[in-house]
Design a protein around this nucleic acid. Structure first.
Lengths: 141, 141
DNA sequence: CTCTCAATGATAATTATTATTAATTGAAGC
DNA sequence: GCTTCAATTAATAATAATTATCATTGAGAG
């Protein structure tokens, strides 16, 4: 029935309310939240939930490849349950992160890395840093 | 005379022995060291140097675009004085970082990001995660 | 050479994250 | 529907990376 619960079971993780709440929250946002943000957002519905639970949950979801953990040079990590390959655009002014699902073909590069360096690529990420449209507008006051 | 000292002056940074030592060290390695590594490597020649100095120095060098600071999902940041655009290959087994200077043309993508999202890109980075040749060999015991 | 302000060193403080531990709870079998 | 057991949770202590504080020093301008 519930796709997310299925995913948890497939990874042999117990389907607990807290875990499901954190996983759903991540699956239904494109905000790339930090642990702190997740915790604060769920506090209303789960007043007893501990920050440590959020940390442990994202770690196990990450270990089971159900979410991605990444860092864009900020003080804390961000999380994303959208597992399709995509790039991140970090606005260095408002610190929001946008997604870009356009296809950048890296197959040939990955093939070359294997051939030239013997480096076997399992994953990659690509990040663009700059100013988003909204911030650019605000600047033109 | 000294290119590195010139760079510091051009950024209006005083050319102190500690600062020059840290900057040179970064300019002459391809190890992508952490603050801890830099500190330990210079301790022999600069026994009085403080860890705080290393932190403050890499921060100011980074702010002046003389070095790059990045994080590949590890516990601490890495630094690199090689400012030409290049990709990083992180071996998830030995945690060494390799450089790839091959040209991946992203001009059209950057142009598209501007056109479609109004996102003005100032910088980007690309990271590949996998297993390096040496580690792959060791695995075949 | 002297003066001034930025840089440094020593260390305290802060922040993000992880470890510990005891209590609780979900899931599987009966 | 119970019981049991291992996984999960909450609370909190501990750790590790980084930043802040502040007195002292030294690079570089004049």
């Amino acid at each position: 029935m519930n796709k997310l619960a299925e995913n948890l079971k497939a990874s042999k993780l117990k389907v607990t309310p807290q875990r499901l709440a954190i996983y759903s929250y991540l699956a239904n946002t494109n905000e790339h939240p930090t642990v702190e943000t997740i915790y604060n957002s769920l506090k209303a519905d789960y007043p007893a939930m501990s920050l440590a639970t959020v940390y442990k949950t994202v770690a196990s979801l990450r270990d089971n490849h159900l979410i991605k953990e990444f860092n864009l040079g900020e003080d804390s990590n961000r999380y994303d349950a959208h597992m399709e390959n995509h790039c991140h655009l970090l606005c260095t002014r408002c610190h929001r992160v946008f997604d870009y699902y356009g296809d950048i073909d890296l197959k040939s590069v990955i093939y070359e890395l294997k051939g030239t360096f013997g480096f076997e690529t399992n994953a990659f990420d690509m990040n663009f840093y700059g100013i988003c449209e909204e911030c650019a507008k605000e600047n033109n006051n």
